[in-house]
């Protein structure tokens, strides 16, 4: 399991636009680099990030080799209702990780 840091504001009021921030530990190896042995280091990147609120997709992003290691994503979300946010990263080599956080709406 990769380490992930998720920041969800806890003081949102109904209808507020809040900023959700996610950071995950991942090497994002481009596949273009050559190792010390002269062989190409195989590509190992995250391909897709999806954020769902109670199963409904509210944000998604595609990631490419130019994205730096340990990718950080921040996106706005209108807090219309409280619920469970799930964050899924999918990548090369069958990488898949899902984390959850609670969105509270006053």
């Amino acid at each position: 399991m990769a380490r992930a840091l998720i920041t969800v504001p806890q003081d949102a009021k109904r209808g507020d636009v809040v900023e959700i921030r996610v950071l995950i530990a991942h090497p994002m190896e481009t596949g273009f680099r050559v190792g010390a042995d002269g062989r190409r280091v195989p590509r190992d990147i995250l391909r897709r990030f999806t954020c769902r609120l109670d199963g409904e997709v509210v944000f998604a992003a595609e990631l490419f080799p130019a994205v730096s290691a340990n990718p950080y994503l921040a996106f706005p979300l209108r807090a219309d209702r409280a619920g469970t946010l799930s964050f899924t990263w999918e990548g090369d080599g069958g990488f898949a990780q899902t984390e959850t956080a609670t969105l509270n709406v006053a």
Binding site: L5, R21, L23, Y72, A74
Partner: peptide
């Protein structure tokens, strides 16, 4: 929340 070093701190 942006500093990638905090991933290591958590470890």
């Amino acid at each position: 929340t942006q500093n990638p070093a905090m991933l290591f701190v958590a470890d």
